[in-house]
């Protein structure tokens, strides 16, 4: 599954690679693989994140309602189509503002079942986050509640493709398919051992203290030390540096702001806090 947000395109390349490999190796396919490149087709077709015309976030209307609005009705039919799957991956690309390392996010309610699967998906990071009532409206939560293991992948950035990430996740998907006996490949490549976090206090959020232009100095995936400059917020009218943004803690910079225009509160970065000897 991908394209639930019409501006997140990283999953398009994953779908392409998966479909291509299956086309080229039909004899290795032992089960059914459904590919949904455009869960929100009007959104992708019109460079719109939400559902055009309604401006609704499609990932806040699941599981939908058979007697609800058009959008809720569509959500219900999608769920009906997916129930019974052995596994579902819902591939996102953060948004147009942030770049992320390839990661899987798991609601703590489904941790026991999903973490062992996620560890085989060849991602860099597994982030178990707290339960949140609003997130009960997501596709993944609805599927997990209906006993379909559903993993949420976040990687790259909105409106762009990162081929290396797409290849990495594609390898992970075929690895998982092999384990689930959907795919038969005698040669099984090893997968990455992901960084794991389930303690909310381990993740540090950096928000813009002022409005301006954010110039990043560090890239996602880098190790940073407490006090390192992550970037700066500039005033293009006056040539002043309005604020230097420093890492408040040492750790792993797994999210960084990509879109330069910021206002007070805009998310600039996330750091997974680690002690010096763990880095």
């Amino acid at each position: 599954m991908t394209g639930i947000h019409g501006d997140e395109l990283e999953g398009q390349l994953v779908c392409f690679y998966v479909a291509k490999k299956i086309r080229e190796n039909p004899g290795k396919l032992l089960g059914t693989v459904d590919i949904y490149p455009a869960t929100n087709p009007l959104g992708i077709d019109s460079v719109t994140r939400g559902i055009p015309g309604f401006d609704l976030d499609m990932n806040r209307i699941f599981p939908g309602e058979p007697d609800g609005t058009l959008t809720e009705y569509v959500a219900t039919r999608i769920i009906q189509d997916l129930v019974g799957s052995d596994l579902c991956l819902d591939i996102h690309a953060s948004n147009i503002y942030l770049t992320e390392v390839p990661q899987i996010r798991i609601n703590e309610l489904f941790r026991e079942r999903l973490v062992p699967i996620a560890q085989e998906a060849n991602v860099d990071f597994i982030w178990v986050h707290g339960a949140n009532t609003v997130l009960e409206s997501t596709l993944a939560h609805s599927l997990n509640s209906l006993d379909v293991p559903a993993l949420v992948v976040e990687m790259g950035v909105g409106m762009r493709l990162t081929p290396a990430y797409a290849r990495q996740l594609t390898d992970g998907i075929f690895h998982l398919m092999n384990r689930l006996h959907i795919w038969k490949d005698d040669v099984e490549n090893p997968v990455k051992k992901p960084v794991f976090s389930q303690d909310p206090d381990e993740v540090c959020y950096l928000n813009a203290p002022v409005s301006g232009i954010f110039l990043k100095k560090r890239c996602h995936g880098e190790i940073v030390r407490k006090g390192d400059e992550i970037g700066s917020i500039l005033n293009p009218y006056t040539g002043e540096v309005l604020q230097c943004v420093a890492a408040p803690e040492s750790g792993w910079l797994f999210t960084i702001r990509e879109y330069p225009v910021v206002e007070e509160g805009s998310l600039l970065a996330r750091i997974l806090i680690r002690k010096a000897d763990e880095l």
Binding site: R60, Y205, E263, E264, G265
Partner: peptide, 15 residues
């Protein structure tokens, strides 16, 4: 109207 009760250290509309 999807941000209440808000978060004073969060993103802009949460603030």
């Amino acid at each position: 109207n999807r941000m209440f009760p808000g978060y004073r250290l969060g993103e802009t509309t949460q603030r």
